[in-house]
Write a protein that binds this DNA or RNA. Structure first.
Ligand SMILES: Nc1ncnc2c1ncn2[C@@H]1O[C@H](COP(=O)(O)OP(=O)(O)OP(=O)(O)O)[C@@H](O)[C@H]1O
Length: 748
DNA sequence: GGGCAGTGCGCATCT
DNA sequence: CGCACTGCCC
């Protein structure tokens, strides 16, 4: 193995002797690289068997990539290594140790819709007002409790609200166990419970894991930290890497103070700081540093560009509205791909909320440019996928009442809420599951002891379904997964159901395509089987399915961008109430996290960073005005080039000229002793943006200038009834042209 | 039971 | 504006 691609400090971390190690360092300093090298070093130099290594990453994708990289470095298979996310590692432990736990080893993992659905049912059954107790909120309270290792009976019940929450929590957990189901938080919660309460089990794992390594340590929560302590309790070789400034999952219980806790719990920990940044240009790093320096309670860090490239300025584009903003992004990418030597995969567009991807997608589609979209529940969240998964779950566990209830009337069988209630009641009375009940109806017919409970009209359909169900159960062990799925799809005439229940032809085709994609996916599990397939469907999210091959720009949220890097990054929607998000504005801690989110986004860029915002955005069908994000003020002026409209450009020049390029000084007054950030109007020029005259020139047009020749219009804006056009000319490059003075000929 | 129109609210970010 | 939920009628 080579260590030459590492600097001295990185080498020190990779080859650190046994014992706890804490690598704390800024973005792009090679933390992930160090972790990867460390694993290779352990296996190759120290002869540690992969089986004795646990490496925890933040996403499944990162785990896969890390495994591939280690394997190519070491030149041998890492078979046996425990490499995965907290959730997948816990899922694995729980399957093996279910004997100690209140559920069976073939448990299923519920998705968030299922979880919310259960809460809704409980609220209804308990006659709790769902306006006062929003299912979403109650569920999130339960989730928070679990992430703090609080079970239903340990919940504090001082207020009426907490009492209700406790009641729902208790019933929620009962429902899950009754269906042999777990939610995401349970995976962590029960793993820690297990290791807490069964020292022998804990020791077995702690002895197995000679080395425990954790990436993105700043985003671990209390349960995860407890888990790590257990798993490293025998050998004490715990190697964690992280950066407090990149902690962006506070809302999910993550606590960067785990870093402090770690130092306290492992006082002999070797602490290594990495200072070189191998990713970005100095301009980007300077700007990012200024932005993050406004957060308090942190160690001030210097980010030094190891590449020793000053780099281009950050380009700030202020658009008329959010549609123009999206069009600007796509046009710029197109321009750089057409006229530069950039390829699609050099670009990423990052945003705060998934909803923001829509206008970008539209702009990409319109321009005919391919793109990759990460996340946003485009596949796993679809009804047709969830329906079929529910069938497979029911086949996997015939006692699964939740899946049964979901599919018994999909496709329509005439079994409505009323009949379902009767069915569930009859099953409970007989102490069996509804699945078993219909099996009995189907196989024993009128000799079934349950035959008498139902109206004859329903009996036929239920018995018919029971026989189909029996057929699937018979086939379950003989057929491979794709064949089993085919059998179900055919038996229930699902394709026909989709045809008949889709609003349009395209819609039906689209849904069919999803079914085929699911079918394709099952081929990857021919060997592994149903249980593994179901687990991956729950734990591998859209987030992890970045298509590797396609050479196209990536669209993703800032959260999904964590750990990634791109040559050119667009951070869009830098407006107050978007980033920072409106819901974060009241809590200083949350606002600080929004700032970190911006910081994470900025530091994804290797060479060029674009930041965009819009003066108005659409929402709920109408437009509303936007103010620039308060974070923009902290970008030093000398790092910035302002474009997009005449007002802001002029503003910029004046500012730069008058105060030696110091933005804060220019913005001055609102940065006073009070320390309160006001005056976000930095980029705003009154009345500058509403076009009084129609634009004549549009992005993408070819035009001819009398003296500069031919060029492509990038953008244009109307100000004081005059149109200024941004053009890239073939010969003379980028110019701004005042169209009322110069005769511009449109060529297309 | 199912399909329809009428009402109301916007449930961030992810496993 | 668009979806989720409600209440009404066949
Ligand atoms: N010593 C080095 N020499 C050359 N390139 C390096 C070196 N160390 C890291 N890099 C490169 O720098 C980039 C950032 O590394 P890496 O992703 O490991 O950083 P990180 O600290 O994990 O970043 P982040 O915290 O932003 O996720 C990668 O492209 C990596 O290959």
């Amino acid at each position: 193995m080579q260590l030459d691609h590492l600097n001295q400090k990185q080498k020190a971390a990779v080859t650190a002797p046994s014992g706890p190690v804490l690598v704390l360092a800024g973005p792009g300093s090679g933390k992930t690289r160090v972790l990867t090298h460390r694993i290779a070093y352990l296996v190759q130099q120290l002869g540690i068997a992969p089986f004795h290594i646990l490496a925890v990453t933040f996403t499944n994708k990162a785990a896969q990539q890390m495994q591939v990289r280690v394997e190519s470095m070491v030149g041998e298979s890492m078979r046996g290594i425990w490499m995965g996310t907290f959730h997948s590692s816990c899922a694995r432990i729980l399957r093996r140790e279910a004997a100690y736990l209140p559920f069976d080893s073939n448990y299923v993992i519920l998705d968030s819709d299922d979880q919310i659905g259960i809460v809704k049912n409980i609220l209804k059954e308990e006659n709790i007002n769902d306006k006062q107790f929003r299912p979403y909120t109650v569920h999130s309270d339960i989730s928070n409790a679990k992430n703090n290792l609080v079970g239903p009976d340990e919940l504090s019940v001082d207020t009426q609200r907490e009492k209700v929450t406790q009641r729902v929590y208790q019933r929620y957990q009962q429902t899950l166990f009754a269906n042999n189901a777990l939610d995401f938080d349970d995976l962590l919660f029960w793993s820690v419970k297990l290791l807490n309460e069964h020292p022998a089990v804990r020791d077995a794992y702690a002895r197995q894991f000679e080395h425990v390594l954790v990436d993105e340590f700043q985003d671990t929560n209390l349960v995860q930290y407890a888990l790590l302590n257990h798993l490293a309790s025998y050998h004490g070789n715990i190697f964690v890497v992280g950066d407090e400034d990149q902690s962006i999952y506070r809302w999910r219980g993550a606590d960067y103070r785990n870093v402090l806790r770690f130092e306290k719990d492992y006082p002999n920990a070797k602490k290594i700081l990495l200072e070189e940044n191998y990713r970005s240009t100095q301009v980007i790093l300077n700007a990012a540093t200024q932005v993050i320096n406004r957060n308090s309670n942190r160690t001030i860090k210097d980010l030094r560009a190891a590449r020793e490239i000053e780099g281009n300025k950050i380009i700030l584009h202020e658009a008329y509205d959010d549609r123009d903003e999206a069009v600007f992004v796509v046009d710029t990418i197109r321009r750089l791909m057409d006229h530069g030597n950039a390829k699609g995969s050099d670009f990423a567009v990052m945003y705060r909320t998934n909803a923001q991807s829509r206008l970008l997608e539209e702009a990409f589609l319109k321009s005919g440019l391919d793109y990759k979209l990460v996340g946003a529940q485009r596949f796993y969240g679809r009804l047709e996928i969830k329906d079929l998964i529910a069938y497979l779950r029911l086949i996997h566990n015939p006692a699964d009442e939740l899946s049964f209830s979901r599919i018994i009337n999909t496709p329509k069988r005439g079994i409505g809420p009323k009949t379902l209630q009767d069915l569930l009641a009859a099953a409970h009375a007989a102490n069996i599951s509804p699945g078993e009940l219909v099996l009995s109806l189907g196989l024993e017919g009128d000799k079934s002891e349950h035959w008498g409970h139902f109206a004859s009209r329903n009996l036929n359909t239920l018995a018919f379904f029971g026989r189909q169900f029996a057929g699937w159960l018979d086939a379950r062990n003989d057929l491979h997964l794709p064949e089993l799925l085919d059998m179900v799809i055919e038996d229930i005439a699902y394709e026909q159901y989709l045809e008949e229940n889709s609003s349009t032809r395209e819609n039906a085709t689209d849904r069919m395509a999803n079914v085929h994609e699911l079918r394709r996916l099952t081929y990857e599990y021919e060997e592994a089987g149903l249980e593994v397939f179901l687990e991956n469907m729950a734990l591998v999210s859209d987030q992890d399915t970045l298509p590797e091959a396609a050479d196209a720009p990536t669209l993703l949220t800032l959260h999904a961008a964590k750990g990634l890097e791109f040559s050119t990054v667009f951070l869009v929607g830098l407006d107050q109430e978007i980033l920072p998000h409106s819901r974060s504005l009241f809590e200083p801690e949350e606002l600080a996290e929004e700032r970190r989110l911006f910081y994470v986004g900025m530091t994804r860029a290797e060479n060029q960073l674009y930041i965009t915002r819009a003066d108005r955005r659409s929402g709920y069908g109408s437009y509303s005005d936007c103010e620039p994000s308060e974070f923009l003020k902290d970008i030093p002026l000398e790092c910035l080039e302002v474009a997009g409209r005449p007002g802001s450009t002029r503003h910029h020049h004046r500012a730069a000229g008058s105060s030696g390029g110091d933005w804060n000084q220019y913005v001055g007054p609102q940065r006073g002793a009070s320390g309160i950030n006001t005056g976000t109007r930095v980029f705003r020029v009154p009345g500058a943006n509403r076009p009084e005259t129609e634009k004549k020139y549009h992005p993408g047009m070819r035009v001819r200038h009398p003296s500069w020749g031919e060029g492509i219009v990038l953008d244009s804006r109307v100000y004081d009834e005059e149109e200024t056009v941004d053009i890239t000319f073939e010969d003379v490059g980028f110019k701004k042209v005042l169209a009322s003075i110069v005769r511009l000929e449109i060529l297309d």
